[in-house]
Design a binder for these strands. Structure first.
Lengths: 228, 228
DNA sequence: CACTTGTCTATACAACTGTATATTAATTCT
DNA sequence: AGAATTAATATACAGTTGTATAGACAAGTG
């Protein structure tokens, strides 16, 4: 999706002095901790890219369309990152730790793209939100098959793997979002918190797979409909 | 904070035909799934409230100030809600289930206020974000003392209660935010997912308290620095 | 060459924004 | 009654926004 037409030499017309990617880059330069994508104006992006406002329409119909392209790119970047993290993980260290570390690492380096994916899934148009949701679900699905595979390999059970994946994903993303407002030196601390949280979830799902799911938690009295 | 001056009879001047609360209400009428607080304009709110644009300044200095007042109100509403949920919980059912149910219930009823708290903590000015963060932390702290108290009462251990509270809070809030985009009839399903997720965390923290924390998870090889 | 085609720019317009200034209206105090 | 004080308004202005229209430039075609 959002493919660039290949540079066939047989097409008439003027040589494009600017490309979609240039516009995306210009938009990226403008977003930041205080500037959300949905608050960018068409003219602003055009100005940053050094073109006339109307030239924008040659590449995108809307700012919304640009935003979705941005999300796509952020998603690709994230998927690449996670792929690498997974590769590193199975070799030496735990998935949890190395994934979290890779995530936080990317958070510092590639800040803007992650920013978009993390924080702006809640505002904006429907198309915008769906695009973010799609990337989240992608992340989630990959994590799910990973979890199942690892659980089988290690002989540990896993209760409701899909929900485990969902919980972990959402947790990583929100924690990452809040980490972005913190000074760089506190990122390691947040990463450590994330690792502990994820371990709790994993220990929980394993215990529940081993001993059966409890019908109530620490707060409630025993219930009658507890499963045998 | 944001106190109304008491109606002393001894102050000259014209009777105020509109109050801060009316402006807040007008702003609330405007926000929705497609309209974020930070995208509201001063004139728009004034128009909705039926006053001249400049009259806005009699009550707030900024739209930002209005936004923070909105967050305060949403926070109060949420705290009230949680207080009730906790009251109900200790009596008959589990904290987890009844809290989640109360949360989702409020989500449907009082949609707008929760909306603001849930979705808009990531965009907007610093003051805005800090206000949301403050409310989140409040929620978190209350939950933490609850967890510790319950763990003691039931004789179950609890590992890193503060982190448990944080994880649960963030999870509830993000899941709640995504639920708001779903049709009403799927809310129960999301609530069920949330309950399972939270139980995993609680079972996890209990197991870790009982058996000691694992030095690595299901994916990694044993590490040497494992705690005795 | 003229011709078409696609890219970009210039100008323009109506709508909207936040806010400054000045004026009017309502209420209480003396 | 009149003076004082405060809320609300009307008008106005400069800036920004999205976009419509029309024209200029460059590259390929016949």
């Amino acid at each position: 999706m959002t493919l660039i037409p290949p540079p066939m030499p047989g097409v008439p017309g003027r040589k494009a002095v600017i490309s979609r990617e240039d516009l995306i880059a210009a938009a990226l330069k403008l977003v930041g901790p205080h500037r959300s994508v949905s608050s960018l104006s068409l003219r602003e992006v055009a100005r940053e890219a050094g073109i006339a406002p109307n030239s924008f329409y040659r590449h995108f119909r809307d700012m919304d369309e640009l935003a979705i392209a941005l999300i796509d790119q952020a998603g690709r970047s994230l998927r690449h990152l996670i792929g690498e993290a997974r590769h590193r993980a199975t070799a030496e260290r735990s998935v949890v730790r190395s994934s979290v570390e890779a995530f936080m690492e990317q958070l510092s380096a590639d800040e803007k793209l992650l920013h978009i994916l993390l924080r702006e899934g809640n505002v904006g148009s429907d198309a915008f939100k769906q695009a973010v949701e799609r990337e989240l679900r992608f992340f989630e699905d990959e994590l799910c098959v990973d979890l199942v595979r690892l659980a089988e390999a290690h002989g540990t059970g896993i209760h409701e793997p899909a929900l485990v994946a969902k919980a972990i994903t959402r947790l990583i993303f929100t924690m990452g979002a809040t980490a972005m407002d913190l000074p760089r030196e506190r990122h390691a601390e947040v990463a450590e918190q994330m690792v502990v949280m994820l371990r709790m979830i994993i220990v929980g799902t394993q215990t529940m797979a081993r001993h059966g799911v409890p019908a109530n938690d620490i707060a409630g009295p025993p219930r009658e409909d507890r499963q045998a």
